[in-house]
Design a protein around this nucleic acid. Structure first.
Length: 641
RNA sequence: GCCAGCGUAGCUCAGUCGGUAGAGCAGCUGAUUCGUAAUCAGCAGGUCGGAGGUUCGAUCCCUCUCGCUGGCUCCA
């Protein structure tokens, strides 16, 4: 009898268990499951006929998906056992875990989660087989009606074909395409994480269900690692660090989603902005400033009052005219463009602005610095001729990647969003423009050999775009850069330039933000570095700690020498023991700590301690100064002495 | 906006089955002059998120409201 395992043919005896052929196969890792002719089986599965086998490993997406999905069924099983009368909604595998939605009068409490978890362990320990059952539709509907599961009935009636696939384990049955584990015994290492509300089928007018989230892994260590990652994320939370390091706050009287930048946070922001301006000026951009409010007629022309009104704040009355807070900067930049007749010789124009915009966000979505109602975009508009778009896209792509790298973000994921081919009517701009724009985006990505994901239907109505997501120290992705074509605004504002042919032409406009917003980027930066900012960004770069009062004068002089070289330095002359001051400086995450006592005063040196690295011994002041000035100027991301 | 949870001193948290509150850190004052992550003592600090109701009496119970948290929805 011949079987093919992951493409390699083996000859085995009928009835051989999969487990027994692993010796011959010598896979690099031990598999947990296998797929045999489209079914998921355990390693004890006996091969009875010729067929295709593929091995499934504990850390593969496929394996985890099956496990997660089966764990969600196990959870539903436990919930129905514990709380009869509960209705089940849907329960898929998701990134990092699973959830299941339940319809039940009484809300689940954290205590209930423990009980459910215990029940799940019980059911898993019984190692109940999970069986696929094919019903015909009416039979399935009848069965779920009898069980009182009307949500499932609704789903089957809508989604089920003539025959309906269900999975059963013990007394629990679910309408589900699978695949699932062979039995519940595989589900050992899991944890239920939280309860929240979720709308039935995502419709906010519909019924609200209770969603329980959990996570599951094949082995104990993977679960422990994941839970550790969650802890680590909590430690890095920018809201916690923002308070501890005195970077920013928001307060009730101000209103949600509005941020106060404290001196240290503002220092970092100013450093970011300074760097950003330098890079833009040397990178071929000009910088604009525009106001925070504009007349209704402007927003009428731009179309924002038609298509963006829900995100805009109510108008204010100024001399009986309506003025609106700006949710975007583009109409202002366009006004600058229109102040004079533009020639093709003027293009491309690259106009950037750190523009503060205000957008209404629903109260429930506000989150620290990451989702706010007032924020400063590092915005720019590139206005160019059709012939220039490829060069401009390439340029902005390079620029963005290099700017992000300055802050230590070098691992990116790029997405290209294009039209939904099935719904071409809803887009602004001509067929030719879309094709040309998309081609230039693709060409630029390919010229730089940047891997990207093409997503159909994700483009906004006015043009295709490239988004860049950066990966932080915990491997989490954050969207920062967006580069979008806009075929709508030039039309609405009737932007033109005079071509070589002395005729008016419509320019192309590209809207781009690289860091995204300063608030959000700062939040990401705090979490990425866990508050341990690289030297060039640190609000306080060095602190001088005199051992006792008699070393104060030396410390003050040394401090002044650092400050004269442009280092943000402080002398801590509080009458405290050195251990106390060191602890304080370490907690404040100050990169460089200089301890000075009798020895240093006598030798004219300082003892250097580097944050998180410990005591480095004595350094010569002149050499040390040269070195840190250099590290600071070069915006080094690491400190080595 | 919706569901659930939370809101006690600047911060982290305890507490009151209804009789107006307590610790540690931070702060202030004093002593200590010290060598690589917390010196000691004293003091001060709260209309227990806000408003209303029930009650002889509310920080505690109820209603409303504001804010925060986790999600959902949204994210041109």
């Amino acid at each position: 009898m011949n079987i093919k395992v992951d493409g390699v043919v083996f000859s085995v005896e009928k009835g051989t268990r999969l487990r027994d052929i692993l010796g011959q196969l010598k896979p690099a890792k031990t598999p947990v499951l296998a797929g045999v002719d489209g079914e998921v089986v355990g390693l004890d599965f006996r091969l009875e006929k010729d067929g295709d086998v593929h091995l499934i490993y504990s850390d593969s997406d496929e394996g985890l998906d099956i496990l997660r999905h089966s764990a969600s069924h196990l959870m539903a099983h436990a919930v129905l056992d514990l709380f009869p009368g509960t209705q089940v909604g849907i329960g898929p595998a998701i990134e990092n875990g699973f959830y299941y939605d339940f319809l039940r009068e009484t809300p689940f409490t954290p205590l209930d989660l423990e009980t459910i978890e215990k029940k799940m362990h019980e059911l898993a320990d019984r190692n109940v087989p999970i069986q696929k059952i094919i019903h015909d539709k009416s039979e399935a509907v009848g069965q779920f009606k009898k069980l009182g599961q009307s949500l499932k009935v609704e789903l089957i009636e809508e989604k089920g074909g003539e025959s309906v696939s269900c999975y059963a384990q013990g007394g629990f049955v679910d309408f589900c395409l699978g695949p699932h584990l062979p039995s519940t015994g595989y589900i050992k290492h899991f944890k239920l994480l939280s309860v929240s509300g979720a709308y039935w089928r995502g419709d906010e007018r519909g019924r609200q269900l209770q969603r329980i989230y959990g996570t599951v892994f094949f082995d104990k260590k993977q679960l422990a690692d994941y839970l550790h990652l969650l802890e680590e994320a909590k430690e890095r939370d920018h809201r916690k660090l923002g308070l501890e390091l005195d970077l920013f706050s928001s307060c009730e009287d101000l209103g949600g989603g509005l941020i106060l930048w404290h001196p240290k946070g503002a220092r970092i922001r100013a450093t970011i902005e300074q760097h950003w301006r330098e890079r833009h000026w040397t990178g071929g951009y000009d910088i604009l400033y525009t106001p925070h409010i504009g007349r209704a007629s402007l927003w009428q022309t731009s179309g924002h009052l038609d298509f963006y009104k829900e995100s805009m704040y109510s108008p204010m009355d100024i001399d009986e005219q309506d003025y609106y807070l700006k949710p975007m900067n583009c109409p202002f930049h366009i006004q600058v463009y229109k102040t004079r007749l533009r020639s093709y010789r003027d293009l491309p124009l690259r106009w950037a602005e750190l523009g503060t915009v205000y957008r209404y966000e629903r109260s429930g979505v506000l989150h620290g610095l990451l989702r706010v109602r007032g924020f400063t975009q590092d915005d720019a508009h590139i206005i160019c001729t059709p012939q220039q778009i490829y060069d401009e896209i390439l340029r902005v792509l390079d620029f963005s990647i290099s700017l992000l790298a300055d802050f230590g973000f070098v691992d990116n994921k790029i997405e290209l969003s294009v039209r939904d081919p099935k719904n071409l009517a809803k887009y602004a701009g001509s067929e030719e423009m879309w094709q040309q724009a998309e081609a230039s985006l693709v060409r630029a990505l390919e010229a730089r050999k940047l891997p990207y994901k093409r997503i159909e239907g994700e483009a906004v109505f006015y043009g295709p775009k490239i988004d860049i997501k950066i990966k932080d120290a915990l491997g989490r992705l954050w969207q920062c850069t967006t580069i979008q074509f806009d075929f709508n605004m030039p039309e609405r504002f009737d932007m033109t330039y005079v071509g070589e042919d002395n005729q008016p032409h419509r320019p192309y406009m590209v809207h781009r933000a690289l860091l995204g917003s300063l608030e959000r980027f700062f939040g990401i930066l705090i979490e990425h570095y866990k508050g341990n900012f690289p030297l060039w960004l640190a609000p306080v770069q060095a602190v001088i700690l005199p051992i006792s009062e008699r070393h104060e004068e030396y410390a003050v002089v040394l401090n002044k020498r650092l400050q004269e070289r442009g280092i943000r330095s402080q002398a801590d002359t509080r009458r405290e023991k050195i251990g106390y001051k060191i602890r304080d400086a370490e907690n404040q995450k100050i990169p460089l700590i200089l301890v000075v006592g009798d020895k240093e005063v006598a030798a004219g040196t300082a003892s250097l301690r580097v944050h998180t690295q410990g005591d480095k011994g004595q350094v010569q002041v002149v050499e040390f100064l040269d070195k840190i000035v250099d590290l600071n100027k070069n915006k080094s991301l690491t400190l080595s002495f």
